[in-house]
């Protein structure tokens, strides 16, 4: 108990002193997870729009599959992306393995099902009368999709924030694709895992506090957007 208590105190000291290692790992984590959320967002929101607005064979099954992939194990995605970008993989020539870009790519894949699925749900929740009104007032197909996305903006932003939160807190992709290289691909989650295994509890606790604080901030932001 005393060890935890002293570790906590030391961790707070590290945060208060803006320890360079803590700051660097935190900012790298934020950069990689924000980038993956942005990348996934620009692909998944329009894709969610297409799935919601187009009628095609197997649409329901596709949505079910996407929703099943919400809980995709991060190590499975890590393995998949590893196979894709490893030297002998189809994208091996891009030299993405053990790089922040590879981590962004992997995390974007990981959070895509959540973003697509929640975007579809968000758009489906917009009243059909809004669509009728927009069409009746002369909206083209594309203007209609944009109007509906605007109407569902709070829920769509929530989808992006949830995706960001999952990217920030995952460890499988970051470890397998990033390789936890100090000063290059080490992020909050992989650093916590490593420092704990090395018995460096105060640094682990400091990073843990930061991770929880960011998650809390995301949650507060979500609630604010959702008007709660």
């Amino acid at each position: 108990m005393e060890e935890i208590y002293s570790g906590l105190l030391r961790a707070l000291e590290l945060i208060a002193a803006r320890d360079p290692q803590v700051v660097e790992i935190t900012f790298r984590s934020l950069f990689i997870s924000l980038s993956s959320a942005f990348l996934a967002g620009i692909i998944c929101i329009p894709l969610g729009g297409i799935i919601e607005f187009r009628q095609f064979w197997g649409k329901r099954a596709l949505i079910n599959l996407i929703q099943t992939l919400y809980s995709l194990p991060t190590v499975t995605v890590g393995l998949l992306v590893f196979l894709l970008i490893s030297r002998s993989g189809p994208l091996g020539g891009l030299n993405l393995l053990f790089s922040p870009t590879g981590m962004i790519f992997g995390q974007a894949i990981l959070i895509s099902p959540i973003m697509i699925g929640l975007t579809v749900t968000a758009l489906a929740s917009v009243s059909p009368q809004i669509r009728d009104t927009a069409r009746s007032l002369g909206a083209t197909e594309m203007q209609l999709i944009i109007t509906v996305i605007k109407e569902a903006r709070v829920a769509v932003i929530a989808a992006v924030l949830l995706g960001f939160g999952r990217a920030l807190s995952e460890v499988g992709v970051a470890m397998m694709i990033g390789g936890n290289i100090r000063g290059y691909t080490r992020v909050l989650t992989t650093a916590i895992a490593l420092e704990t295994s090395m018995g460096n509890l105060e640094l682990s606790i400091a990073l843990g506090i930061i991770l929880i604080s960011i998650s809390l901030a995301i949650n507060l932001l979500l609630n604010r957007f959702q008007g709660r």
């Binding site: 809004i130 009104t133 007032l137 002369g138 909206a139 083209t140």
Partner: peptide, 26 residues
């Protein structure tokens, strides 16, 4: 044409954006 529905719905926006919606679409 233009249609006014029995139970009209408003876009999540100010009145000005609602009224100008059709003009902006054009």
């Amino acid at each position: 044409m233009a249609m006014v529905f029995q139970k009209p719905v408003m876009f999540k926006a100010r009145v000005e954006e609602n009224v100008s919606f059709g003009l902006k679409m054009r």
